[in-house]
Design a protein around this nucleic acid. Structure first.
Length: 515
RNA sequence: GAUCCUGUAGCUCAGCUGGUAGAGCAUAUCACUUUUAAUGAUAGGGUCCUGGGUUCGAGCCCCAGCGGGAUCACCA
C-alpha cells in the first residue's frame, strides 16, 4: 500500500498521531452504550416535559460550525442526524481545555465516530439539539468524505451522485446519502414480511444447493466452476426449482427459499448476474389457488411496507390490492392486436408477425412466435397487476399440461408496470411426461439453443416415486423491490451490484510495463 | 454487441480559437459561547482516466485502449 496520500489524508494521519500523543486511543476497544437514536429524540423531545435529560448517543460527526468557545455540529447515527452543541467550559469544566481546544476543534474531522452524553434542548432557532457534557472519540476516519450540504428547503449542494462511485463505494454512498438507506430498509422489510406470511401458513423455510452438478429449473446460461476434490464441474444455480420439488416428493407439503440465483448473461438496469428470488411450492394446490395466494401476499407486503396498497412507479400509480385482472395469453394478444391466434398454425402466425412488423426468424417455433407477439404488443400495456395465464407448452417444460386446453400448460405470470415479477405453475408431476419434455429440450440444445434445459434424471427418478399435485411460484425480489421503492435501476436496490474491477494506477503501470 | 454522452483538486463542476489549470464546498492558520449551505481573513492542494500521435506548444485536436452512464439489441 504505497499510494500517494492527498493533503487531507496526510492531515488526518497526523491528527491520528497527535491523538495518540495525547494518550487518547483513537480506536478504543470498550463498548459505548447508546440510549437513544437521533430520530427518537427529534420525534419525542418536548422542552416543557424536559425529557431526554440524560442521553447517550453515537455516530459520525458530519458537520461542524465552530464559533470560538462553542460549536454546533451534526451527529449522524443509524436513524438520521441530530444537531449537537458543544461548549468549551461544558466539556472541560476544569483548567485543562485540551479536550475542546485540541481534540474537538483541531484533531477531530468530519466522518469520525464519536460518542456523546448530554441533554436535549431547543435552540433559539427552534432546532432540537443535544447539549453535550461528555464527548469521546470512538473511531478515527482517515479519508475525507464527500461533503453534501443541503438547506432547510431541501436543496442539495455538491451531492455525491456519480453512480459509479456510489456503487463502488456503497459505504460512502450510504453515509453521505442516507436517503438511499431507506431503499434497503424497505427491501429488508419486504423479505421479512413475506417470510412472516409464509411462516404463518406453516410453510417451511429451506435451503437447497447453490452449487449444482446439473443446472436446471430455468432457461439461462450458467456460471461454471470446478470442485477440486471431486474433480468435477459444478454450476452456480440458475434456479432452485428442481430441488424444492424433491422436497415436496419427500413429504414437506409447503417449502420456500429466499436465495441468490446466478445467470451468466447480459447486464443492464434490470439484470444483475446474481439476483434474489423467492420460490415457494405448496402441495395439493394448483395455479388458480396460487393466484389468490399471490394477491394476498403482495397486498399484505405492500401494505405493511408502504402503509398502503398503492405505490407510484414512475408516472403510474399501481394498486396491489387484489384481485388482479386475469387474461389468458391468447386473450391478451387478441385484446391488444385484435387478432385471435389461438387456432392458428405456425405458418399463419408467421403471417401475423409480418403484418405486425415483428422480426422473426426460421428457427422460431410456435411457442416462440407467440412469445414474440406478446412481448412486442402486449407486455407494455400491463400496468396494473395482471395475470397472464396458459402458456404454450413448448416454452414451459416443467409445468403441467392444461386441464382442458390442448397445447397449453397451467402457468401464469404476473405483470406489473409492463414487467414480469412472478411466475407460477401447476407443477408437472407426471414423470413420463416430464422425461419426454426434457428430451424435447435436448433436441433444442442440439439445434444450438444454449438455454435449453439439461436432462436431470435424478429429478425424474424423484417424480417416479410420486409427487403430490403441487403449485409453485417464483418472485423476483429485486424487481419487486424496485417497484415498491420507485427505482428504475436494479443497481439501486442491490447493495453491491456487479461492476468491472476498478483500475488502479498500479494496474495501469503494470500493464504499460508488459507492453 | 451497436450508438451517443462522459472521465479535470477529497466532492460537485468551469476551462473560450491549442499558449503549461480555475470556482464553490472541503482542508490548514487566525478570530468568534445559540449556529445551521454559520461568518470574516489568509494559505496550501492537480498523474487533467491510460498509452501513442500531430504541433514550437495538448486538459482541449487525431488514433487506440480502459472505466461509467443513457438508448437500442440480446436475455427471464
Amino acid at each position: 500500500m504505497n499510494r500517494t496520500l492527498s493533503e487531507q489524508e496526510l492531515v488526518r494521519r497526523e491528527a491520528l498521531q497527535k491523538i495518540r500523543d495525547l494518550g487518547i486511543d483513537p480506536y478504543p476497544a470498550e463498548r459505548f452504550d447508546v440510549t437513544a437514536f437521533s430520530s427518537d429524540v427529534l420525534a419525542n423531545f418536548d422542552s416543557e416535559k424536559g425529557n431526554y435529560q440524560e442521553v447517550s448517543m453515537a455516530g459520525r460527526l458530519m458537520a461542524r460550525r465552530i464559533m470560538g468557545k462553542a460549536a454546533f455540529a451534526h451527529l449522524q447515527d443509524m436513524e438520521g442526524r441530530i444537531q449537537i452543541y458543544v461548549s468549551r467550559d461544558e466539556i472541560c469544566p476544569g483548567e485543562d481545555k485540551t479536550l475542546y481546544n485540541t481534540l474537538f476543534k483541531k484533531l477531530l474531522d468530519l466522518g469520525d465516530f464519536i460518542g456523546i452524553k448530554g441533554h436535549a434542548f431547543t435552540t433559539r432557532t427552534g432546532e432540537t439539539t443535544i447539549h453535550v457534557t461528555e464527548l469521546k472519540l470512538l473511531s478515527k476516519s482517515l479519508r475525507p468524505l464527500p461533503v453534501v450540504k443541503s438547506t432547510k428547503e431541501g436543496e442539495t449542494y455538491d451531492a455525491f451522485s456519480d453512480p459509479e462511485q456510489r456503487y463502488r463505494m456503497r459505504y460512502v454512498d450510504l453515509t453521505v446519502n442516507p436517503q438511499y438507506r431507506e431503499i434497503f430498509k424497505r427491501r429488508s422489510k419486504i423479505v421479512s414480511t413475506m417470510r412472516a406470511f409464509f411462516d404463518r401458513h406453516d410453510w417451511l423455510e429451506v435451503e437447497t444447493p447453490v452449487l449444482q452438478p446439473i443446472h436446471g429449473g430455468a432457461a439461462a446460461r450458467p456460471f461454471e466452476t470446478h470442485h477440486n476434490t471431486l474433480d468435477m464441474p459444478l454450476f452456480l444455480r440458475i434456479a432452485n426449482e428442481l430441488y424444492l420439488k424433491r422436497l415436496i416428493v419427500g413429504g414437506f407439503d409447503g417449502v420456500y427459499e429466499f436465495g441468490k440465483m446466478f445467470r451468466n448473461e447480459g447486464m443492464d438496469r434490470t439484470h444483475n448476474p446474481e439476483f434474489t428470488s423467492v420460490e415457494i411450492y405448496v402441495a395439493y394446490k394448483d395455479y388458480v389457488w396460487m393466484m389468490e395466494m399471490v394477491e394476498q401476499l403482495l397486498e399484505e407486503t405492500t401494505l405493511k411496507v408502504t402503509g398502503g396498497t398503492k405505490v407510484m412507479v414512475g408516472e403510474n400509480e399501481i394498486d396491489f390490492k387484489g384481485p388482479y385482472v386475469r387474461m389468458s395469453m391468447y386473450e391478451s394478444i387478441e385484446k391488444y392486436t385484435g387478432i385471435d391466434i389461438s387456432a392458428m398454425t405456425e405458418e399463419e402466425m408467421r403471417q401475423v408477425c409480418k403484418q405486425l412488423h415483428i422480426e422473426i426468424d426460421d428457427t422460431m417455433g410456435r411457442g416462440k412466435l407467440i412469445d414474440e407477439i406478446f412481448g412486442e404488443k402486449v407486455e407494455d400495456h400491463l400496468i396494473q397487476p395482471t395475470y397472464i395465464t396458459d402458456y404454450p407448452i413448448e416454452m414451459t417444460p416443467l409445468a403441467k399440461k392444461h386441464r382442458t386446453a390442448e397445447g397449453l400448460v397451467e402457468r401464469f405470470e404476473l405483470f406489473v408496470n409492463g414487467k414480469e415479477i412472478a411466475n407460477a405453475y401447476s407443477e408437472l408431476n407426471d414423470p413420463i411426461d416430464q422425461y419426454e419434455r426434457f428430451v424435447d429440450q435436448l433436441e433444442l440444445a442440439k439445434r444450438g439453443d444454449e438455454e435449453a434445459m439439461a436432462l436431470d434424471m435424478d429429478f425424474v427418478r424423484a417424480l417416479e416415486y410420486g409427487m403430490p399435485p403441487t403449485s409453485g411460484l417464483g418472485i423476483g425480489i429485486d424487481r419487486f423491490t424496485m417497484m415498491l421503492t420507485n427505482q428504475t435501476s436494479i443497481q439501486e436496490v442491490i447493495f453491491f451490484p456487479q461492476m468491472r474491477p476498478e483500475k488502479t494506477a498500479e494496474d495501469a503501470e503494470a500493464e504499460a510495463k508488459e507492453e
